[in-house]
Design a protein around this nucleic acid. Structure first.
Lengths: 148, 148
DNA sequence: ACAAAATACATCGCACACGATATATTTTTA
DNA sequence: TAAAAATATATCGTGTGCGATGTATTTTGT
């Protein structure tokens, strides 16, 4: 009875747990630099394309501005980015990396590989884990289309 | 350059996003009942085995007591559980479902299926998504062993 | 051109997560 | 058995996520 309400039968619990544990695994690399995992994601977005308005960053990370705005405010206070009023559209806030924010790119360059190695050393092989990517993208695409 | 720092090359971002979007997809089912996703997880644990100490619930969900204790306090205030001092070990707090907490099991019984149907209607097929489960378990097992 | 709708950002409140720390109780160990 | 270590829970502070709401600016529809 209630088979579908067993914790071990739930995909969602696995996703929730895996996401938390991955963030936790990143902690040792982030803590010395004084950044958090979501802040790292913002940096990834800005390293690819600097000088974006808040809404574009939010869209890329699939977050809302009520999450991203305070996040960027903290990052500005930490000296990682600056937020300037847009020239064409004054509603916008253009977010730009500071020297410190750009410099962090080199400091972080080896981290994904290190973490990958950490995981592989425990899991055994990376292939099975990386093979999830297409299915995750499919799931994310489907879930994203639910609320719009 | 910096290929490994591209957002689209990161497994972790997919896990983080998928977990958030799944929780969001659950929202319409939880909101009318006044519970949250983590509270639902606690209910899953207690429906399987009622009357557990805080530490066992935390262990099952791979969370710490500093997350679970306030969670249970809110659930007690909401009338879903009671927390009583343990008889053998008075350090423990035994968490037990109330009538309301137990009744919610039937109200939730069809939710995982409904959500599954929601996702399948968008993703197309469930097989590829469900096929991730063994890899997720492997990943979780590996990550868990990193910090201990 | 001008009122209405849409957009961009911000603020507020609440509920997690989690590191750090504190307290009480049990278990272990010398 | 008494001190030390381990365990169970709780509290505090910070940083997200996100629903609800507010404000300013741009775009749209007539």
């Amino acid at each position: 009875m209630y088979e579908q309400l067993k914790l071990d039968n739930q995909l969602c619990f696995r996703l929730y747990t895996a996401a938390r544990l991955v963030m936790r695994a990143y902690q040792p690399y982030f803590a010395p630099l004084g950044i958090t995992y979501p802040q790292y994601l913002v940096l990834l977005v800005l390293w690819e394309q600097d000088g974006q308005p808040v809404c574009d960053i939010a869209k890329r990370l699939m977050l809302d501005t009520n999450t991203v705005t305070p996040l960027l405010q903290r990052m500005e206070k930490a000296g990682l980015v600056v937020r300037q009023k847009g020239k064409e559209d004054t509603r916008q806030r253009i977010v730009t990396l500071t020297e410190k924010g750009m410099a962090m790119r080199e400091q972080m360059a080896s981290v994904p590989e290190c973490l990958g190695a950490d995981v592989v050393s425990k899991v055994g092989s990376a292939d099975e884990v990386l093979a999830m990517i297409p299915a995750l993208d499919k799931l994310i695409g489907g879930l994203k289309s639910i609320d719009e």
